[in-house]
Simulated assay, not measured.
Amino acid sequence: MIAFAVSALFLLLFGVGVLRDRRRFGNAVYLGLAVTFLGLGLLSAVDDLPHGLTETVLVLLLLVLGLGPVVLAVLLCANGVTMVRKEGRSLANLLSLLAGLGILGVLGLMAVAVLTHSRVLGVVAVTLLLVLGYVSFLFLCFVGYAFLYGRMRLRRDAGFVVVLGSGLIGGRRVPPLLASRLDRGREVYERLAARGQDGPPFLIASGGQGPDEELPESHAMAAYLVERGFPEDRVLREDRSRSTEENLLFSKELMDAERPGAGCVIVTNDFHALRAALLARKAGVDGQVVGSPTAAYFWPSATIREFAAVFLEHRAVNLTVCAVLVAVGCLGLAVTG
């Protein structure tokens, strides 16, 4: 009963957090803790199940805990190979492969520690498992809340649609990833325009010029839309930004000059939506973020990259927790020594 009560408390905190501002990573942690304690409560109630069903549930749980990490690691490695084949070699494209190899490495270290009865390897393996468990918990919180955030109802009072840039092909052409954002932005624009509140919104194409680009991303984005029949007088070009943070800050300047106080809907790819929302809150932008579809093979590495960025944005807390877990492992080694 205590676990259920704690779960209900965190669920209440999650609900209050979403009502106050859905663009907070704390909401993801509250939701993760609510689900965790709910699972603990259900697990404690397994003994009350009919005879035979208890054993079945426990066997399934052991299979999930035992085989789940191995299956996940293999899938991540396979995805990493696919990413390298389709997108080329880069650190960002290798993230899922590195994550899979990291999981297999920790599992292998645990197996060696058990087989060799090594006290040192055992403590090291448990320490790594504690750190991996903490990071994995936050990652699941991130993924779960990102899924929910992407399905929250679209706001009704937006005066702008901001489409974030993502680089050009050959220095001047819109790639499929960015085309997906622009198509989604146009869809959002048409939905808002159909409501007829205070006239149609403006669409801001946001993206500066990179060192390997012949023109600013925003100009290519605007041309893509206009060539497909989008009204040119409703497009604004933000052509100074080099990062998501600058996309939001410079777009905010355009919005404040055109319609002070008006809200916006920010469009990016689905894997980037939650982090963009966190950054929008930090930049003081009154905007909800929606995502456009992304190829399935691209999603794991991209999501890991987005989570890593959020993890490091809260580095003071997260690295402190990891340091404490490592210290606990070292203490365990000293005690058993």
Rank of each mutant, 00 (worst) to 15 (best):
Asn79Thr: 13
Leu164Asp: 01
Val310Gln: 01
Leu325Arg: 08
Arg242Pro: 04
Ala158Asn: 02
Val81Gln: 08
Pro216Arg: 01
Leu98Arg: 02
Val324Trp: 11
Thr268Phe: 06
Gly332Ile: 04
Ser206Val: 00
Leu62Glu: 14
Ala295Glu: 15
Leu177Arg: 09
Gly291Ile: 12
Thr294Asp: 12
Val114Tyr: 13
Arg153Ser: 11
Leu19Trp: 15
Ala302Cys: 12
Phe25Arg: 04
Arg155Ala: 04
Ala3Val: 05
Gly102Leu: 03
Tyr297Gly: 07
Ala179Pro: 05
Ser7Ile: 07
Gly165Tyr: 09
Leu107Phe: 02
Leu109Met: 07
Gly196Ala: 11
Val124Asn: 05
Ala280Asp: 04
Arg173Val: 14
Tyr145Trp: 07
Arg181Thr: 06
Ser301Met: 07
Tyr145Thr: 09
Leu203Arg: 02
Gly105Ser: 02
Leu319Ser: 14
Gly207Cys: 10
Ala273Gln: 09
Cys322Leu: 13
Gly66Glu: 00
Ser180Ala: 15
Asp270Cys: 04
Val226Met: 12
Glu245Val: 13
Leu128Glu: 10
Val71Arg: 01
Ile169Asn: 12
Phe307Lys: 01
Val18Pro: 07
Cys264Gly: 01
Ala205Gln: 03
Val328Gln: 06
Leu312Cys: 09
Ser218Pro: 02
Leu60Val: 15
Ala179Met: 04
Ala113Gln: 10
Gly108Val: 06
Tyr189Asn: 04
Leu67Asn: 02
Val114Pro: 03
Ala222Leu: 05
Arg20Asp: 13
Leu13Lys: 00
Phe142Asp: 06
Ala92Asn: 13
Glu55Cys: 07
Pro211Ile: 09
Leu76Ser: 03
Val174Pro: 03
Leu101Asp: 00
Lys252Leu: 15
Leu97Gly: 02
Leu148Met: 08
Arg151Asp: 05
Tyr189Leu: 03
Gly15Ser: 05
Ala273Asn: 03
Gly171Met: 05
Leu128Lys: 02
Val188Gln: 00
Cys264Ile: 00
Phe230Met: 05
Pro50Ser: 11
Trp299Gly: 04
Arg228His: 11
Val321Lys: 12
Ala295Val: 15
Ala179Lys: 09
Ala28Lys: 09
Tyr145Gly: 06
Ala220Trp: 08
Arg240Ser: 11
Val71Met: 04
Leu19Met: 13
Leu104Cys: 06
Pro300Glu: 00
Tyr134Arg: 01
Leu49Ser: 09
Val106Met: 03
Asp270His: 10
Thr116Tyr: 12
Val29Asn: 09
Leu148Thr: 05
Leu58Ile: 15
Arg259Ile: 07
Gly52Cys: 08
Thr303Leu: 14
Met152Gly: 10
Gly185Thr: 06
Met110Asp: 10
Glu55His: 14
Pro200Glu: 06
Gly88Gln: 08
Glu87Val: 07
Met152Arg: 04
Ala8Thr: 10
Ile2Trp: 12
Val143Trp: 11
Ala323Cys: 12
Thr294Pro: 11
Ser206Trp: 00
Val131Tyr: 06
Glu306Ala: 00
Val123Lys: 08
Ala296Lys: 12
Asp157Leu: 00
